[in-house]
Design a protein around this nucleic acid. Structure first.
Lengths: 137, 137
DNA sequence: TCAAAACCTTTCGTATACATAATATTATCG
DNA sequence: CGATAATATTATGTATACGAAAGGTTTTGA
């Protein structure tokens, strides 16, 4: 085994690359990217959430988020509205399209997860998820 | 737990994000990025390797690689030379700087790995790496 | 041998990702 | 009350990442 093949950064990068590509392919027909899907989940959970809070929740940089939200608004997934009581905040709301598509999109994510983890036993899945959470803290 | 927090794509993305940021910070003073470090490893292992073979080895897109190699050449880590016997190939060679820095850079990667996996037992490290390899195939 | 296929790399367009600076709004404190 | 600090978002610049198209080079096969 080469040096880099035992490197955790490399292993994480390539596993993520694979998982991301799987999900990206599934979302392609819906005109959505994996990160955009993730943002929809945050807004499904808490409509009217501020841009900054989406970033905190999903651990996404504000600068990154700004562009993603613009593209999502352009394509009719969300719309932005300035909070009237504190104009520093931009609040994010779902379009009808985003509400209608929710069940289908959740299903796509579920299938991607099953395919990515398909070769693992239930116990292995639980362990992998726990370890991935561990190394984040 | 929210829906997305149990999603393997999200967990991989965030674990990778964390690991990548750690290594990126360590390499900053050397003027190198994690991907550039990875490419150096491929060339340390096989000097004169073609651009395409680096991509195959490291699972990097050719389009991505092209830009990374340009920046590395600009900054004096590598140089490119067209293969005279088959001019379709570009072969990649190390500069003296890349050779001299090798021990130090390998050490940085080692430390990043230790810090990222610091909270895990030896057994957990082995299991995590195995599972990450599993989901790539 | 020469046109087509195969191969290698680069270019272009789009999408994250993040550091830093700039801008706007609100809160705070002397 | 007004300067300043704190907060939220956006703009800019750099670095991956990848699909698709374009441009060379070499091999193949009729």
């Amino acid at each position: 085994m080469t040096q880099y093949e035992d490197c955790i950064i490399f292993l994480l990068a390539k596993a993520y690359q694979k998982a991301h590509a799987n999900f990206k392919g599934r979302l392609l027909t819906h005109g959505l990217t994996p990160v955009q899907h993730l943002i929809l989940e945050a807004v499904w959970e808490d409509e009217g959430i501020s841009a900054g809070d989406i970033g905190k929740k999903l651990v996404l940089d504000n600068a990154t988020l700004s562009g993603v939200l613009d593209r999502m608004a352009e394509r009719g997934w969300i719309f932005k509205a300035t909070d009237e009581s504190d104009k520093r905040f931009i609040r994010i709301y779902l379009t009808d399209k985003a509400k209608e598509m929710k069940p289908l999109l959740i299903e796509e994510r579920k299938r991607a997860n099953e395919e990515i983890l398909g070769g693992l036993t239930l116990e292995e899945k639980v362990v992998l998820k726990r370890l991935l959470r561990d190394i984040q803290h």
